[in-house]
Design a protein around this nucleic acid. Structure first.
Lengths: 225, 225
DNA sequence: CTTCGACTAGCAGGATTTTCATGGGCGCGG
DNA sequence: CCGCGCCCATGAAAATCCTGCTAGTCGAAG
């Protein structure tokens, strides 16, 4: 689980990092609010631990800005004062939890675990996407159908991953083009169609049930039926 | 938002109930662990607030048993002692938060709001129009009736979406033509009628009650009756 | 009671749009 | 150079869309 810690006291920061790392978490430290914001916007973290008093950008403001991009990411605040007013501010800014310094490391660990548990369920299925007897392993980037390995090219894989992430949802060609090819204009080509065709040949031909379905006028959808 | 409070001190219980009710929450009180478990199993609550020391079944055990049925329901513990050991037990049992008595009501309210926000967010991304047992998922562009998927063409879907957005209202053919076909003149055709007919065949034929109704001389209306 | 007109339901098939599969060009790395 | 992955273009095939038509309903007028 990827955690971002934003804390300007180097000693406390490295103490926390050591502790959580040894518990198997993947933790990055930012030493001021700007750095924290920049990191948080670059990639999604599973959990944010924010000091309230930070140089350049305080924790509350940072929290608000991050929440604009990632409304669901769990956030824990660390603060030096145990004032109700601060708590109100923290929760209003969108905090999920709140710890007053000094705290026992065990305390922090409990909070991290509690918030992590939320993600866990989603995380567990995030390593392997599956639909009927089709499996896509996100780590190994290996795809199998009925236990049989299927070799895909880079683009084919990217397309399949996107479609499987949205299984059951009808996805438009434009949405596919944006996510798989990073084009946000109408290319006026049948690129998407061609790759769906490739995928069908490899995934559906010779297997049952068919998993890739066309919805005329709307796009494509993956479902077992 | 439906909350279940399990607390054996009547005075504290009614204090909490009064406070949260005035904040617009729908709160039920259970006075012992058994009663709490029985209620929690009967219907899903959006949030559980559990005292740790309860007659018949203690809070930790209650938490575990409820989590077996509802793994994601947020749970807040109330306890009389501020011991780290208790916190460990609470979080291991699956708690999301923890309050030590006595606490300011404001404190509890903050926690309730923070945990409620979670649910809300999950709810908000579920863009669903519904009428009786008919559901239209705007995100996935999938329509179901009585749990059974119904495949619609683009125009049929657009028409249904418009009608459902205006459910209960009588919509004229002209208004439909404008919104679904982007024509703002009288085309002198029975296009709308034809598509309503298509929808009826797919949505209403074989189901009850009928949802699409004709209002002679005025247009169409969707309602359950 | 009958007729008439206004209105609606639903079908059928040709017109139109959308999708599929294939062949081939291009560029890159072995 | 060769093979492979990537992308474009084309025509055939399929699905959808729309028009025109018939049949049916209902109420009011004769």
């Amino acid at each position: 689980m990827k955690i971002l810690l934003v804390e300007d006291e180097p000693k406390l920061a490295s103490f926390i990092k050591k502790g959580l790392t040894s518990e198997g978490y993947d933790l990055t430290i930012a030493y001021d609010g700007q750095m924290g914001l920049s990191l948080a916007q670059q990639q999604p973290y599973d959990l944010l631990i924010l000091d309230v008093n930070l140089p350049l950008l305080n924790g509350f403001e940072l929290c608000r800005r991050v929440r604009a991009d990632y409304p669901h990411v769990p956030i824990i605040f660390l603060t030096a004062f145990d004032s109700l007013e601060d708590k109100v501010l923290a929760f209003e800014a969108g905090a999920d939890d709140y710890l007053v310094k000094p705290f026992a490391f065990q305390e922090l660990l409990l909070r991290v675990r509690a918030l992590g548990r939320r993600q866990q369920a989603a995380e567990a299925v995030r390593h392997v996407l599956s639909l009927a007897d089709l499996e896509l392993n996100l780590d190994a980037k290996v795809v199998t159908r009925a236990g049989q390995r299927i070799d895909l090219t880079t683009k084919e894989y990217a397309l399949l991953e996107y479609l499987l992430l949205n299984q059951g949802r009808i996805i438009s060609r434009v949405a596919i083009a944006e996510h798989v090819w990073d084009v946000n204009f109408d290319t006026n080509t049948n690129l998407v169609d061609v790759y769906v065709s490739y995928l069908r040949k490899k995934l559906d031909r010779g297997f049952s049930p068919k998993l890739i379905h066309t919805v005329v006028g709307m796009g494509y959808v993956m479902r077992a039926e």
